[in-house]
Structures are given as structure tokens and as C-alpha cells.
Computed example of a mutant assay.
Amino acid sequence: MDTKAKILQTALDLYNEKGIHTITSRHIAAEMGISAGNLHYHFRHTDDIITALYEALAAGMDALMAGVEAAASARPKDLLVFAGQSFAVLYKYRFIFLHFPEIGMRIPDIKKKYHILVKRREKEFMGLFGKWQEKGIFRKGFPEPVLQELVTQIFLVGDYWLAHNELTQRLKGKQAEQAYTNVFQGLLWPYLTEKGLKQL
């Protein structure tokens, strides 16, 4: 692992453990046993480190969603697997979503990138749900705004489950990921036909 990658991993560990308020570039450098100058050679500001970690998170999520999209025969079970894998990625970068409103204000570029990502994801989910209605997996008769509300609910669970967990159950690792995968499944349940439920 090169120095840049080590900086990102060390910063990720410290941010996840102690949050973004108390950790500075000097803390990260000290944890690594390098000089602050060496760290700043790779990342001028701590916000650059946070941005790089956000981009790594976004890339991981893009790769997972691409896998779902590539499966033309994607079933509800596949989406549930995607959800579980997504929660694992989000847990790995959990400090971002535990501090996301503040990070968005502090680093406007991240807020802008997130807004673009959400719009793209909305289209992807709506496209998938439309296909499921055609295949008899999702119940028909739901107006488009109702399906759009389901997408919003998916984002609410995806973006805020970490804060909910931190304030309530305080589950760790795979236990947390499984618990909120179950919550995700509950969102889909009312929309699934008998055929869809069998595929779940």
C-alpha cells in the first residue's frame, strides 16, 4: 500500500472512530508516524482527504448498482443482495453519513456530486420497478408518484440508517448490515405480487 492509500485508510479509521470534529491532518500523520508535511504533499487539506474518501464510497456504490443493472433478469432477491452489499460499503465509510449534512455544507462539491448521484439512482430504480411491473413481480396500479415515494424511502433508509443505529440499537458490522437489510426488505414487501414474494 502506497503512502497516499495509507493516509486514506488511516483517516477512514480515525474518522469512523472519533468523527470529523477532533481529527486533523496532524492526528492522521501522527497515527501513521509521518510528518504533517509528508501528508500535505499528498493532500493539501483534510477536506481533500474527506473528498477522496467520498469518491471511493461513490465508486463502490456505482460498481454494485452496475451489477444490478447488468442483470436483465434481476429479481427482488438480487436487489436484497445489493442492499446488503450496499450497507456493508456504507458501514465501511460510516463517518460520512453520520456527519453528512455538515460535510455537505463544509465541502459544497460533495453536496453537488451527491445531488447528481441521487438523480441518476432515481432513474435507475424507477426503470427497474417499471420492468418488475411488466414481469408481474411488482403489483400494477400504483401511480408513478407512489413508486417515486418508494425510491425516496429507499434513500431515507440508505442514507440515515447509520444515524438511527447509532442512536438506538448500536449494532456493529454484519449485525447492523443484516438488521437494516431487513428494513429494506420491508419497504418492498407491500409492492410485490405473489410471484415477486416467491422470488424474494
Rank of each mutant, 00 (worst) to 15 (best):
L117E: 15
L12I: 01
I20Q: 11
V157Y: 08
K123I: 10
G33C: 05
E69L: 13
A88P: 07
R94P: 00
L57S: 08
P145V: 11
H99L: 09
H40F: 05
Q148D: 15
N182M: 13
E134K: 15
P101V: 04
R94S: 04
G84H: 02
I116H: 14
Q85M: 04
L150V: 03
G186N: 13
A56Q: 09
T22F: 06
P101E: 08
R75M: 02
K174W: 02
K111E: 11
R120S: 13
L57G: 04
P143Q: 12
F87L: 05
G141H: 10
P145R: 11
K131R: 15
H99Q: 13
F100N: 06
L80P: 00
P190E: 04
A74P: 01
K174I: 08
S25Q: 10
Q175N: 07
E149Q: 14
F82T: 02
F138T: 09
G130I: 12
T22C: 00
G186E: 10
L12Q: 05
A74L: 03
R170K: 15
L200A: 07
N182P: 10
I28G: 09
E144S: 12
R120L: 11
K18F: 11
G104T: 08
T46V: 13
L188P: 07
L156E: 02
D159M: 14
K140Y: 09
K113C: 08
L57H: 09
P145E: 11
K135G: 06
F95E: 05
L90F: 08
L90G: 04
R94K: 14
G67S: 02
V183D: 08
G104L: 00
F142K: 13
Q169R: 14
N16F: 13
E17Y: 00
L192H: 00
I110A: 10
R170N: 09
R121C: 12
T10C: 12
K92M: 03
A72W: 02
K198H: 06
H99C: 12
G33Q: 01
V118M: 13
A36M: 05
G173W: 03
T51G: 04
W161M: 12
E102Y: 07
A63H: 03
Y191F: 15
A58P: 04
Y41A: 00
T51A: 01
Q199L: 15
I34D: 11
K131G: 04
G173N: 12
L192S: 02
V68E: 10
L150P: 08
I23S: 04
R120V: 12
G67A: 02
I49Q: 04
